[in-house]
Amino acid sequence: TLISTVGGASGPLYGSALRAMGAALPDGPADAAQLAAALAAGLAAVQGLGGAVLGDKTMVDALAPAVEAFRAAADRGLPQAAEAAARAAEQGAAATEPLQARKGRASYLGPRSTGHRDPGAQSTALLLRALATAAGAPSAGPPG
């Protein structure tokens, strides 16, 4: 549904990420290590579809550090790993503000894209914050 109904690039990107994540997860409950692998599969799908890398001012700027933070904290359990990922995504989204977009819809704005947070990175940070909340992570205060 996301792929075919959400406008812009985010629908296909989120749809592809979620499909890849779902395919990487077991049929039953997943542990933190399995979720880390699923998140990595989602990132790979996004990058495979859009070709973005860190610094392009896209959702990858939030998702890539979140995947790495989740993976690094997975041995501490799901709530802690999800919190680490949410914080990394929030920091990654904030870091897009001074960048000029090189990929995605915002790239058409050229220099006018600087000074604004990338919407894909921000929405990715919101999704990862929701994951942390659902996983029972302790509140980290308002997102930056």
Rank of each mutant, 00 (worst) to 15 (best):
Q100N: 02
A121D: 10
G22S: 09
S107Y: 01
H116K: 09
L39C: 12
G55H: 14
G110K: 10
A20L: 01
A125E: 05
R87E: 08
T114N: 00
A44E: 13
A72P: 12
E97A: 14
A37C: 07
A20K: 00
L78E: 06
V46T: 06
T1R: 08
A93L: 10
G22D: 01
V60F: 12
A17L: 10
M59R: 05
Y108R: 15
K103L: 10
R117H: 07
L109T: 06
G115C: 04
D56K: 03
L25D: 01
R19H: 04
T96M: 07
L35I: 02
G55P: 14
A137D: 10
P98E: 07
L127N: 11
G28P: 04
A73S: 14
L131G: 04
P142H: 11
S107L: 03
L18H: 11
T114W: 00
G120V: 08
S10F: 08
A64M: 13
A45Q: 00
V6Y: 00
A30N: 06
S16Q: 08
A30E: 05
A38R: 07
L109G: 03
A44Q: 13
T5D: 11
A84H: 02
R112T: 00
L18G: 07
R129P: 04
R19A: 07
D118M: 08
D56M: 05
P138I: 14
A32P: 06
A86T: 08
E68A: 15
P79L: 05
L25Q: 05
A137Y: 09
L78Q: 07
G42K: 00
D75L: 10
A69K: 03
A137P: 04
P111F: 00
E83H: 12
D75K: 08
L99F: 07
S10A: 15
S4I: 10
H116Q: 08
G104F: 01
S107R: 06
G51E: 10
A130T: 13
A85R: 01
